[in-house]
Simulated assay, not measured.
Amino acid sequence: MATIASAAAASLLDAARSLVPLVEEHAQQGERERRLPDPVARAFRESGIFRMCRPRALGGLEADPLTAMQVIEELSRADGAAGWCAMICGATGVFDAYLPVEGGKEMFASPDVVTAGVFAPSGRAVDLAFTAGGAAALYAESPLQRCFRDVHAVTQHALVAPHTREVQGRVLLGLDTELPMF
């Protein structure tokens, strides 16, 4: 007998599978523009992928971890960047459960709200390897070097840089943020 949770999981996975042709169609556009194309972003939002791990109490689908990973895997097969966007916006919704209830309800009053976040180390080893590789790694066409470049870029992102964590925490707690972000 199927449970409500398993029916919702199957529905979300079916939605991801049905979006594969759209994701594939726009993959090159996303690569050229270096962002998720609007039709794909719209489809992810409308299908619930961007709120798949958000708690039901806040308008999310509260997908279990296995379903979330299967959704991300399906989309990543079609386009790795689109799968990454599904992960960074959809899976991190699990942290929304830690928001104060009233604040969460205010933030997610509309089901169209999309959030993103990440917990990641700063990557000292990646930074050192990137520096040793020289600037040529930024322009290389090798898929491995492109991945290396992208990982390095993520480690330098303001949201994961160590000096911004206190500011992020203060914002989340509603405290004074008189500290510089960068």
Results as ranks from 00 to 15, higher is better:
residue 101 V to F: 13
residue 76 S to I: 02
residue 97 A to D: 06
residue 97 A to Q: 14
residue 89 C to S: 15
residue 38 D to H: 04
residue 116 A to M: 14
residue 104 G to L: 09
residue 69 M to K: 07
residue 132 A to F: 09
residue 36 L to P: 08
residue 25 E to H: 07
residue 101 V to L: 15
residue 31 E to V: 08
residue 89 C to F: 01
residue 41 A to N: 01
residue 76 S to P: 03
residue 87 M to S: 13
residue 89 C to K: 03
residue 90 G to P: 11
residue 113 V to L: 14
residue 137 A to M: 12
residue 74 E to G: 00
residue 130 F to V: 04
residue 106 E to C: 07
residue 107 M to P: 00
residue 135 A to I: 11
residue 42 R to C: 05
residue 78 A to T: 04
residue 35 R to L: 07
residue 34 R to N: 08
residue 76 S to K: 05
residue 78 A to P: 02
residue 44 F to S: 03
residue 111 P to A: 06
residue 68 A to Q: 06
residue 35 R to K: 12
residue 100 P to Y: 03
residue 87 M to W: 14
residue 144 L to C: 05
residue 137 A to Y: 11
residue 105 K to W: 02
residue 140 A to T: 06
residue 92 T to S: 12
residue 101 V to P: 14
residue 39 P to Q: 05
residue 58 L to H: 07
residue 69 M to I: 05
residue 111 P to H: 08
residue 27 A to E: 05
residue 43 A to E: 05
residue 66 L to M: 03
residue 109 A to D: 13
residue 30 G to M: 02
residue 134 G to Q: 08
residue 139 Y to A: 10
residue 63 A to F: 11
residue 45 R to F: 00
residue 114 V to K: 06
residue 87 M to N: 12
residue 33 E to W: 01
residue 92 T to C: 07
residue 51 R to G: 14
residue 126 V to R: 11
residue 120 A to F: 10
residue 75 L to M: 03
residue 77 R to Y: 13
residue 37 P to S: 02
residue 103 G to P: 00
residue 34 R to T: 06
residue 111 P to L: 08
residue 39 P to M: 02
residue 129 A to I: 03
residue 26 H to A: 02
residue 56 R to D: 10
residue 133 G to L: 14
residue 123 G to S: 05
residue 120 A to H: 11
residue 121 P to N: 10
residue 35 R to V: 00
residue 28 Q to C: 01
residue 131 T to P: 00
residue 32 R to L: 12
residue 102 E to K: 11
residue 125 A to M: 09
residue 136 A to K: 14
residue 112 D to A: 14
